[in-house]
Design a protein around this nucleic acid. Structure first.
Length: 465
RNA sequence: GGUCCCAUCGUCUAGCGGCCUAGGAUACUGCCCUCUCACGGCAGAGACACGGGUUCGAUUCCCGUUGGGACUACCA
């Protein structure tokens, strides 16, 4: 049995977002670092809100990120017998009791307490009524009313709660399904989870869970509460910034390596190192280097990492990937060999694959309509003679090559006294429709002589009309 | 409101009592490179929330204030 067993336990009430991926990654890294086991568990006891399509989406997202699991996916909905078994144990030892308070009453009493300025906690109405477990009774935990529950959090340090702050939480609902705090404990016990690494929004749940472990006479796992990811301006992660499905980042043109690297460095560090291979991440990861403070999601830094990984990625691989992003632009079935020549010119110019696809457009289709500002600046009657001359010289070029083109343009510059920029820009607009693009000679090389001449000709006729 | 968590450049972070004239990264600005845009290189600007302690000495330890956040369900 490995010494370390971690788990990621999303509830399929939505797709996997940044926060979930962050938690999953830290659990995965901790397990991998210790050569332990990473368990995937679907917490689907909320029948109202759980949806099957989200299960698949979460799995897809984890796979895309490369966070492979060793056990599971387990589903709480298929472990109901276990919760029944454990609730019996608690009932037998008197650590739990049945409650038939109607939810509507509970809510009314809560509101009343709140109105009086008191705490909105369960008033213990059924605590000593010795009700039997019936078809419509919930089961509550008999929380100790004195004492303190303490644990040494692996990230936050010692945390203590007075038990009197806690009320008698529901363990099993009237419909027999377990609630989160109970199911988690039973699952973590039976799956022999050794380290619970989760968002620090779970800190208030921890003393309740610890008390349940105690009542069950089970050894609790170690807890590590990691910092939450905040949106811009310290607020909640909004749709505008980051509260998107992880797969939305795939659509936006991010590489999984970039996202993993970014998420790893959010709330964790290894000295001054910023770029990590997956191997380094596994090797260096440690809970001791996890920060306590919540961090803001910074799309700019993600973009920077993404551009780094785009530059790193081998051309053939990148070419294959680009194909996927070209399709929505109507560029389907590009020639693989041609793609392989296009990609290197765009590598250093694209922070995302979507941007790369956009920039690649002119390689595959006519650059018209030209950018309006580009036209006004460079496709004017004044540039006509020069474009014609370039056309003539290019046409006479026996072999198109980097050196030949360099020589051609340099000669022309020397002979006309014009600067290279004045020669290059009109041609660039003619070929790409834009004032910014990869190197002109690269473009001519890739487009080929025939296509280049055709496009210059098109620009020439455009100027005339 | 109550309980709990947190606090270093705009942002992510290094720092675990003297190494700090507080380091790196990103973003920003300038310069260089240059056929444009990028990439790359160099430079610049930019932070220890505040107030008390403890100590020979605090960014680092303790307390308080302020500020942010989480939780407060028969959701997870």
């Amino acid at each position: 049995m490995p010494l370390v067993r971690t788990r990621f336990s999303p509830s399929p009430t939505g797709s996997l977002h940044l926060g979930g991926a962050h938690t999953a990654l830290f659990n995965w890294l901790f397990a991998r670092h210790h050569l332990g086991v990473f368990i995937l568990r679907i917490e689907d006891t909320d029948r109202e809100r759980s949806e099957e399509r989200y299960v698949q989406e979460i799995l897809d997202a984890l796979i895309w990120l490369g966070l492979n699991w060793d056990e599971g996916p387990h589903r709480q909905s298929q472990r109901l017998h276990l919760y029944r078994e454990y609730i019996q144990k608690l009932l037998e030892v008197g650590a739990a009791y049945c409650c038939d308070c109607p939810p509507a009453d509970l809510e009314a009493r809560r509101q009343a307490a709140l109105a009086k300025g008191e705490k909105p906690r369960y008033d213990g109405h059924c605590r000593d009524r010795r009700l039997k477990l019936g078809p419509r009774t919930a089961v509550r935990f008999r929380t100790p009313q004195t004492g303190t529950t303490i644990w040494r959090d692996l990230i936050k340090g010692p945390i203590a709660f007075d038990n009197q702050e806690l009320d008698d939480l529901v363990l099993t609902r009237a419909d027999g399904l377990p609630t989160y705090n109970f199911a988690v404990v039973v699952d973590d016990i039976t799956m022999e989870v050794t380290h619970v690494i989760r968002g620090d929004d779970h800190i208030p749940n921890t003393p309740r869970q610890l008390l349940i472990y105690e009542a069950l006479k089970a050894t609790p796992p170690q807890f590590a509460h990691m910092p939450l990811i905040l949106g811009k301006d310290r607020g909640k992660l909004s749709k505008r910034h980051g509260a998107l499905s992880i797969l939305a980042y795939l659509e936006m043109g991010f590489l999984p390596e970039a996202l993993v690297n970014y998420l790893a460095r959010l709330g964790w560090s290894h000295g001054d190192q910023e770029i990590f291979t997956r191997g380094e991440l596994m090797q260096y990861f440690s809970l001791e280097q996890v920060t306590k403070a919540a961090g803001e999601f910074d799309l700019d830094k993600l973009r920077w990492l993404n551009s780094h990984y785009i530059k790193e990625m081998p051309t053939p691989e990148l070419a294959r990937l680009l194909k996927y992003y070209l399709a929505p632009l109507g560029i389907t079935d590009p020639d693989p060999a041609y793609l392989t020549r296009v990609v290197p010119t765009l590598k250093a110019r694209s922070k995302t694959m979507v941007v790369m696809a956009e920039k690649a457009g002119f390689f595959f289709r006519d650059p018209r309509p030209y950018d309006e500002n580009a036209v006004n600046k460079f496709l004017t009657p004044q540039t006509t003679p020069m474009l014609k001359e370039i056309f003539r010289r290019l046409e006479g070029l026996a072999e198109v090559s980097e050196e030949a083109l360099n020589e051609l343009f340099n000669d022309l510059a020397a002979q006309t006294g014009l600067k290279m920029i004045n020669l290059a820009q009109p041609v660039r607009v003619a070929l790409t429709g834009q004032t910014a693009s990869p190197g002109l000679f690269d473009i001519i090389n890739i487009l080929g002589k025939k296509e280049t001449l055709k496009r210059i000709n098109n620009a020439l006729s455009f100027i005339q009309t």
